[in-house]
């Protein structure tokens, strides 16, 4: 899998070992951001960094673990309740004169949002690349009069591609179970027999 290096500026202690080992000079930049045009993804900087400040991240993320509909719907029910908690707490915080209550309600609102975000990640919205996220964005395009949603969704869909569907259909063979099968444009990119993920499938 093709990768490139990124530096967490918060963890970087400027020990400069990455400057010594990088064969392309990608780590030596005026703004501390590793130059991905120069980076070859060799990983030497990450291995040398004494502060664990460098990670290698893939250009293409693998599909998220498949989520069951039963889990997703239980997650959605909780998210709806958490949203009601968040909004109620926000409303109280903005109406009350009691400063302590306002802080407590802000904390409850923040907490409910964080819990809900975490829930939704487990309900399929982990990656912007997943088909569930992409379908949601695509549904925003249907209402072009609402400018921000349609415009932002269009821009995101342009730069982030779906990672769990086949763009172009065709014949495939699974290298795990040797099943041969056909997929159409936009089908889920897995083996229909053994559910192996797309990196196990070869196009015939």
């Amino acid at each position: 899998m093709k990768k490139f290096a990124v530096r967490n500026i918060r963890l970087c202690t400027k020990d400069c070992l990455c400057l010594y080992v990088c064969p392309t000079g990608a780590t030596d930049t005026e703004n501390s951001i590793i130059d991905i045009d120069k980076c070859t993804g060799c990983g030497d900087c990450a291995a040398a960094c004494p502060s664990g400040a460098i990670s290698l991240v893939p250009y293409d993320y693998p599909p998220q673990q498949k989520k069951s509909e039963r889990v997703c719907s239980a997650v959605m029910n909780l998210a709806k309740n958490k949203a009601a908690e968040e909004r109620t707490a926000e409303n109280i915080a903005s109406e009350t004169d009691d400063k302590n209550l306002a802080r407590l309600m802000k904390a409850v609102a923040r907490s409910s949002r964080l819990v809900s975000e975490d829930l939704l990640r487990e309900g399929g919205y982990m990656l912007p690349q997943s088909s569930i996220s992409q379908d949601l964005l695509a549904s925003l395009l249907e209402n072009p009069s609402a400018f921000i949603p349609a415009e932002n969704a269009r821009k995101i869909l342009e730069s982030i591609k779906c990672n769990d569907r086949v763009e172009k259909g065709g014949k495939f063979r699974c290298s795990v179970c040797f099943h041969e099968f056909e997929l159409e444009d936009g089908d889920e990119h897995i083996c229909p027999m053994c559910h192996s993920s797309k990196d196990k499938l070869e196009r015939l």
Partner: peptide, 15 residues
């Protein structure tokens, strides 16, 4: 609901 959409999107922003 809209506020859940808001939560989905703030989560994807983090992602």
């Amino acid at each position: 609901p809209p506020l859940v959409l808001s939560q989905i999107f703030s989560n994807l922003a983090r992602g």
